[in-house]
Computed example of a mutant assay.
Amino acid sequence: MMRVTAVLVCAALAGCQAVPGEGPLASAINTDGGKSGAEIGRQNAAVFEIVDVDNTSAQLVSQYFGSALKRRFGFGSGGAGRAVIGVGDVLKITIFEAGSDGLFSTQDSKQTSLDVVIQPDGQAAIPYVGLVRFSGKTLEEARQTILAALRNKAVEPDVIVNSVNTSSRMVTVSGAVGRSAQVPLNLTGEHITDVIAKAGGPVAQPYESYVTLVRNGRSGTTLLKSVIENPSENIYVQPGDQIFVTRDPRTFTLLGAVKQNARIEFGANDLNLLEAVALGGGGDDAAVNAKGYFLFRYEEPEIIAALIGNARFNQMLAKGMKSDKFGRYPLVYRFDMSRPDSLLVGQTFPIKSRDVIYAARHNAVDFAKFLALVSRPVSVVAQGITVANGIGN
Rank of each mutant, 00 (worst) to 15 (best):
Y293T: 14
R250S: 04
Y207W: 06
K198D: 04
I235P: 02
P202T: 12
G201W: 03
Q260V: 15
N230F: 13
E265S: 15
F296Q: 12
D284C: 06
S219R: 00
N216E: 07
G309C: 09
L254E: 10
L295H: 12
R215Y: 00
K225H: 14
E229K: 14
G309H: 05
I228W: 05
S226C: 12
G267L: 00
P231D: 09
R250V: 01
R218C: 09
G240S: 09
G309M: 09
P206T: 09
L274I: 05
E265H: 14
E299Q: 06
R250Y: 01
A306I: 08
G292N: 07
Q242D: 03
A262E: 12
A290E: 13
E265A: 15
V258K: 02
V245K: 06
K225P: 15
F252P: 01
K225N: 14
A204Y: 08
P301N: 04
D194K: 10
T212S: 08
Y298M: 07
P202Y: 07
Q205I: 00
G200R: 03
P249F: 03
V245Q: 06
S219L: 00
E300Q: 13
D241Q: 00
E229A: 10
G200K: 01
N289G: 09
N261E: 11
L295T: 12
F294G: 07
L271D: 10
N230M: 13
N216I: 03
V245N: 03
G220D: 01
P239I: 04
K225Q: 15
A290W: 08
L213K: 01
G283K: 11
G267M: 00
F294W: 10
L307Q: 10
N230G: 15
Y298P: 04
L295F: 14
A268D: 07
P239K: 02
A287G: 12
L307S: 09
D248I: 12
Y298H: 08
N230K: 13
T253M: 11
A204E: 09
I243V: 13
L307M: 14
G280A: 04
E302F: 15
A197K: 14
L307H: 07
G280R: 01
D284T: 09
D248S: 13
Y210C: 10
D248M: 14
R297Q: 10
N261W: 11
P249G: 05
L223K: 03
D194W: 08
R263E: 15
L274G: 04
N310Q: 10
V214Y: 04
I304K: 05
T246Y: 05
Y298S: 06
D284E: 08
V258L: 02
T222F: 13
N272E: 04
G201A: 05
R215D: 01
A268V: 00
